[in-house]
Amino acid sequence: MVTELAPLSPDLDHFALFGFDRKLVLDSAALDAAFLRLSRECHPDRYAVAEPEIRAVAERNSARVNDAKRVLSDPVRRAEYVLELAGVERPDGEAKCPPDLLMEVFELREKLMEDPGPELVERVLSLFADVEEKLDGLFSRHDAAADDPSRLEALRGIRETLDRRKFLMNLTREVEGTLGKP
């Protein structure tokens, strides 16, 4: 029976916990492998007959691994997490949302309500595809950045693009809803 179990260090970020560099493009097979290795170590099933204190540590450690996996396995959440780690925030006040972006989105929304025709659907989907492509480019640029200033610049671009993506994502969902697609 296990008599001792240390909590995972709170100083480790999700990347460090999984033994990865802080990169925005991750190999999903490597992620899965690391997740399974950590799960086998941490899962409460291994400590089911141990003292309550040890079981509680196991629950928390395992939750930590699962939470990290959830963040790391989704490119958008992963990027949001890196922005948070790097302390990149949205500017305060009105500039928080560029007015032209809001205008564009609002107009598309109104048009979509009036006439969800195939042309409009096409346009929304292609706008979303564009933003995804741009994001991929920025991710690579971030990972390849040679110094802190250029990395920070990439992250600022990512912040803006993720916000645009969020608005377009809702629109895309709406469009797919009208098309009856999942």
């Binding site: 809001l102 989105v105 609002f106 969020k166 608005f167």
Partner: peptide, 13 residues
């Protein structure tokens, strides 16, 4: 007034 919340993608006029 036209505002939006990038956190959830909502827009409001």
């Amino acid at each position: 007034g036209l505002v939006g919340a990038p956190e959830c993608g909502d827009v409001m006029k």
